[in-house]
Design a protein around this nucleic acid. Structure first.
Lengths: 194, 194
DNA sequence: ACTGTCATGTAAAACGTTACATGATTCT
DNA sequence: AGAATCATGTAACGTTTTACATGACAGT
């Protein structure tokens, strides 16, 4: 059900088409939330039906049109309500730690290879996060820039600081994962190579 | 699909009934994987149908019986294959960080209250993890004890070390979350109270 | 007798993934 | 002319959650 709130959150910045949203979801928003096109378009339709969003048809090229969605007052109220409601504690479901607990069932080389892959994944992820964080700090991030354009400096500062705070959490998590992977290599060396 | 592998993993330690498994899933295994009864029982049946598990009817009380499941050779082969296969990179879907990025939409007191709740959650979670880790170190953890009873000392040491390694990862993650929550309090104080 | 634990599910709904489908527009 | 991007979905399937359901056994 949080997909809804992720969509409203994005659209509070500026009106967007399903396609714009879909691109955001595969770029910066993807750090916090992932969703494919096939989930986004139907959800936008349902949200419009439920009165959380409104859309305007915008001409595109010679004959085409596209639908630009914006958040309604009802949508904003719903969003604020969610923002103030307690978080439901998230269920743990973590294949990486599940596997790690049973590494003795796999060949050491296979484990090492998996650690290398996870390391590559988290390093790339971390680089993306740090890149995006930098665009928040200098306020060049496009969605953020659009969002704070309407705000006064105090409000803008607040908005920016919370975004950076969220990214700092994600960056800390990535670093923690990388440190754990390093420990994994060390453990393998100790258990099998010496 | 990982529920399957979580179930095999547990059952490699010792044979269990659906109820035993369900209890494990709401205690120690819950740190890595959560699943309700209504998912466990049907999945056990499917796994038996697919030849990954075998079951024996064990008498229980005067008339009752219970089904004790154990892993078949086919199940073990399937598990090892999964253990050696690369991890599919997990999709991010994180309401806590999504919310944090938009804290400016909520009243500071509401945010503070949520941070307190998350702090309580992670502190409790951390205490459980550290408690369980201690039972791994002294080998008093019941499932672990049953598992290593059949192994020689070298194999037992390997098994125990990997379990501890998995828990160390979870503990590091919990500490990272708690540090981030602390930063959240500090940020709120700076942005609203001074 | 009553309460808590042991034991095992079904059913419906919600959520998410994967694969497929189509066509216009813009850039090179 | 062809490739990349913009634009918008449907369909089938698999996974997860939530709510409901039932009854035997064990300890007080």
């Amino acid at each position: 059900m949080s997909l809804r709130y992720a969509l409203i959150a994005l659209l509070t910045g500026r009106p967007m088409t399903g396609y714009d949203i879909s691109k955001s979801f595969s770029r910066s928003v993807a750090h916090v939330w992932h969703a494919p096109d096939s989930q986004i378009y139907p959800e936008l339709n349902r949200m419009e039906r439920d009165g959380l969003l409104d859309s305007v048809e915008v001409p595109w090229g010679k004959k085409g049109t596209k639908k630009e969605y914006h958040v309604t007052d009802a949508g904003l109220t719903t969003f604020r309500k969610w923002m103030e409601a307690p978080l439901v504690p998230q269920r743990q479901r973590d294949p990486a730690h599940l596997k790690a607990a049973y590494y003795d069932f796999a060949a050491p080389e296979a484990v090492r290879e998996q650690l290398r892959q996870q390391q590559a994944y988290w390093e790339e992820h971390l680089a993306m996060l740090e890149g995006t964080r930098a665009t928040l700090v200098d306020r060049s991030h496009p969605t953020l820039a659009a969002r704070i354009a309407k705000l006064d400096e105090h409000e803008a500062e607040l908005t920016v600081r919370f975004k950076i705070y969220a990214y700092d959490g994600l960056i800390a998590r990535a670093r923690t994962e990388l440190a754990w992977i390093e420990d994994g290599f060390a453990l393998l060396d100790e258990m099998y190579d010496s």
